[in-house]
């Protein structure tokens, strides 16, 4: 068994697992996997991944009942990822977390918020492949000083999106690992591990059959939608409203409609440019 430690949003999580499973863990959380030093500060939670009859069980430290049992280790690790995200959301303090990805463009954080299947991960992926530093995936937390905290984990993508784009633009700035027919993980090479000031908010909208466009939005027109992408903060629902208004006012707020990956890339190059060009 091997012991590793994850550092995410300033919190530590320990995992004990067979070496082969630890290798797979780095697919999900690279570069957040760090050495576990003796006498280091205690972890927020510890987990164990254990071989059992018929597969793999994920246990939370000190508990006998597994959180889940799966035929493949990667699915147990996906449950670990989900469990850690729930714990992180409980520990965000006064930050407001969006269901969003984020990249750093010209020193400012571009938040890509949206519901599942709207294209926030694929847009984050595309901007990363255009050379902008990856900042966060799935949870983008904005601190009281308006800076977006890094959440360095791999991006969960539909393998077909990567294949579609790779036909014209082979992956250059990250690595892709296909986990199964429906899920691939993209690990970007260029990752920002420092918080970046929030500069813009983009709402990707995958709309097959519609012409590609980026339109500027008024905050009052999308306030309810934006609230739907937030995790309720410690201060409650009204605190979330006040904070979303504050964050979205005076910053570019954009809707990006695109019918396919190639059109999305053209829009992103036109609007944000390519950091690698």
């Amino acid at each position: 068994m091997t012991d590793v430690r994850l550092r995410l949003h300033g919190s530590l999580f320990d995992l004990r697992a067979p070496a082969a499973a630890i290798e797979r863990l780095t697919l999900l959380f690279h570069p957040s996997v760090i050495e576990r030093e003796p006498l280091a500060e205690p972890a927020a939670a510890s987990f164990e991944l254990r071989r059992v009859d018929g597969g793999w069980a994920l246990l939370r430290g000190g508990r006998r009942t597994p959180l889940g049992t799966f035929p493949r280790s990667i699915y147990a690790l996906l449950l670990l990822e989900h469990t850690i995200e729930e714990l992180l959301l409980e520990r965000l303090g006064d930050s407001l977390a969006f269901h969003a990805g984020a990249v750093v463009i010209d020193g400012g954080a571009c938040l890509l918020a949206g519901a599942a299947d709207r294209g926030k991960s694929s847009t984050t992926f595309q901007l990363t492949e255009l050379g902008h530093a990856f900042l966060a995936e799935e949870i983008a937390a904005v601190a009281p000083d308006d800076r977006v905290s890094p959440y360095p984990r791999s991006l969960g993508l539909d393998p077909r999106v990567i294949d579609e784009l790779a036909r014209t633009h082979p992956l250059a700035l990250g690595r892709c690992d296909t986990l199964d027919d429906l899920l691939a993980r993209y690990t970007p090479h260029r990752v920002s591990l420092e918080p970046a000031p929030l500069a813009s908010i983009v709402l990707p909208a995958f709309r097959p059959g519609e012409p590609p466009a980026i339109e500027r939005l008024r905050v009052d027109a999308v306030l309810t939608e934006l609230l739907g992408y937030c995790f309720e903060p410690r201060g409650g629902h009204e605190a979330a409203i006040d904070r979303v208004i504050e964050l979205a006012s005076g910053r570019p707020l954009l809707r990006m409609r695109y019918p396919d990956a190639a059109a999305a890339r053209r829009l992103l190059v036109d609007h944000f440019g390519s950091a690698s060009s």
């Binding site: 008024r218 009052d220 306030l223 009204e238 409203i241 208004i245 006012s249």
Partner: peptide
């Protein structure tokens, strides 16, 4: 105040 517009938040129903 929501940008150029205004909204009313109703605490009891958590509606905006």
């Amino acid at each position: 105040r929501v940008g150029e517009a205004e909204a009313v938040y109703i605490g009891a129903s958590r509606a905006l």
